[in-house]
Simulated assay, not measured.
Amino acid sequence: MTTKISESLLEHLVELERILLEPSVRQSVNRLDQLLSPNFHEISANGLMFNKAHIMSRLPSEKVPQFYNQSFIGQMLSADIAQLTYHAAYRHSARAPLHYSIRMSIWKKVAEQWQLIYHQGTPCPEFALQYE
Rank of each mutant, 00 (worst) to 15 (best):
W107D: 04
K109E: 13
E15N: 11
P23G: 00
H12K: 13
N39T: 11
L21Y: 01
F40N: 00
L116P: 04
F50Y: 14
N69Q: 12
P65F: 03
T85A: 08
S44I: 06
H54V: 08
E112W: 02
L129A: 07
M104S: 15
H92Q: 15
A53F: 01
M56W: 03
A79H: 05
L10Q: 15
L84Q: 04
Y131T: 12
R18H: 12
P65M: 07
V25E: 01
V110Y: 09
W114E: 04
F127C: 12
P97A: 10
S78K: 09
L77T: 09
Q83M: 15
I73Q: 12
P65D: 03
E132S: 14
T2V: 12
L116I: 03
S8Y: 03
Q120A: 05
R58A: 15
P23E: 00
K108R: 14
L129Y: 11
H92Y: 15
W114C: 08
L13Y: 04
K108N: 09
S6A: 12
N39F: 04
Q34K: 10
S57R: 09
K4E: 05
K52P: 02
V14I: 14
R91P: 01
R18M: 07
W114R: 08
L10E: 12
E132C: 10
L77P: 06
L13K: 02
G47L: 04
R91A: 05
Y68D: 07
E62N: 08
Y131K: 15
K63H: 08
L32M: 06
